[in-house]
Design a protein around this nucleic acid. Structure first.
Lengths: 242, 242
DNA sequence: TAATAAATTATTGTTAACAATTTTAAACTC
DNA sequence: GAGTTTAAAATTGTTAACAATAATTTATTA
């Protein structure tokens, strides 16, 4: 059978994969678009993504496992709302893990890595300067992720990423969506400086101060509203064709 | 239709819950009964536990998420076989996390906690002395778990438990099922001593040495056989009635 | 009308049947 | 007999229909 050369727009288009749906929801949380407490109904999500309910079900289970959503039997899933205690525990754990990452990294860091990190800092700095706070936040998160990746310990990397995914929920629940509550670029730079000098103690110290800066502000905040799901999930960044 | 009044032994007895099945498989791994690489067939497990395949499916997914089993699309699940690198990363991460736990714990430890820990050590010691190595191993694991629980940081607690669950797989894959590869009771005692003295540095130092003791021995070991699943899962310890 | 109860609707949970894939066995070729 | 192809069986993956539960609406009563 000959195949038309023009795009036939197969109407039976298979929707996004399980991983893709997961990624998009995670990203929505990371971008502060999905506020803690938002109800996630299975059919709603299935229709929205154009997939079967079973797939959504699996995704919600996975999200529940990394504590991005709360699942209650027979009552469905909501975006998680970490308690103050949980938030504090997360930050304390994060300090320990990022310290361990720096200690591992400093033993193997080389000129190429430093260059890579500085390039990242430069991009982050520019995003701040042009007031693109969405991009700046993303790059700031990326800085921490890159440190973990460069350190090369897959377990620490996994744990840090786990915490990073959950952090926006703590911030939104207890501090609000305020630009003040983001990483400070110059502190990131100080960490790279210390790394380059091979000064573990200093790197760890700066990192601690860096994290404590946000950590110390956690206290209680009134309430967050219930907004329209479709809107919250829509503004996804451009995606490259497979 | 009349129903006999004598107990009809409802043949439709509901099997164990999802959590219970999960627990039993986890325990089988922890007890070194399920060797790395063992194939876990869904129907086999379903029949074995007297549950539906769907439930097994969920359990396997959960086990895969905490990396106790490997899941390959269309090819099912096997008990995970961590690489040497992954094992090393786990131990390195464990050192960082257990240190953080000790640092947290030392700030809040009191006489009651010390007493609790010493009682645990005593039981562990007795198990060793009467050559009950299964019990001794369990209590030894419990010691580390108790430190995490007493420290009170839920996130660190979760991560440590994650690592503890995976550790037997590393040991079995790369060291073999040898009594030599277990925790040394006297080192546990030294940690409690340091805690009681409020000596963080010493506690952390002892813990590091304690973990490095096993960590340093990881290297490659020939192969492990494929044994009968039913046998491996059967010898479960007595369970208290709900 | 406010409060309660009953009926309706919406949502989540389960399962059995089916589809897709891989593994095993058998048949065949050289 | 070693290697390849084909057929059968076993295993995993998906789905649509149903069941169970929770949320909402409507009806009822004081």
């Amino acid at each position: 059978m000959p195949v038309m050369s023009a795009q036939i727009e197969t109407p039976a288009k298979t929707g996004p994969s399980e991983d893709e749906v997961l990624r998009q929801i995670e990203q929505a949380v990371l971008d502060h678009r999905l506020p803690p407490g938002t109800k996630l109904k299975e059919m709603q999500l299935a229709t929205l993504f154009g997939v079967k309910r079973g797939l959504i079900r699996k995704v919600l289970t996975r999200l529940a496992h990394c504590r991005l959503v709360d699942q209650t039997p027979n009552r469905g899933a909501t975006v998680a709302k970490p308690s103050v205690k949980e938030g504090q525990d997360m930050f304390a754990a994060r300090r320990a893990i990022e310290s361990a990452i720096l200690e591992t990294l400093i033993a193997r860091v080389d000129r190429r890595m430093i260059k890579h990190l500085r390039k990242l800092l430069e991009r982050e700095h520019r995003a701040y300067q042009r007031n693109d706070s969405e991009k700046a936040l993303a790059l700031s998160v990326d800085f921490h992720r890159q440190l973990a990746a460069l350190a090369g310990n897959s377990v620490l990397d996994e744990y840090l990423n786990d915490i990073i995914r959950r952090t926006p929920l703590v911030i939104l629940t207890h501090l609000g969506d305020d630009d003040q509550n983001r990483c400070r670029n110059q502190e990131h730079a100080a960490i790279v400086d210390a790394l380059e000098q091979g000064n573990v103690k200093k790197a760890v110290k700066v990192m601690h101060r860096h994290l404590l800066h946000i950590e110390n502000k956690i206290r209680h905040k009134p309430e967050s509203r219930q907004t329209d799901l479709a809107t919250l999930l829509r503004p996804q960044p451009e995606r490259l064709p497979a």
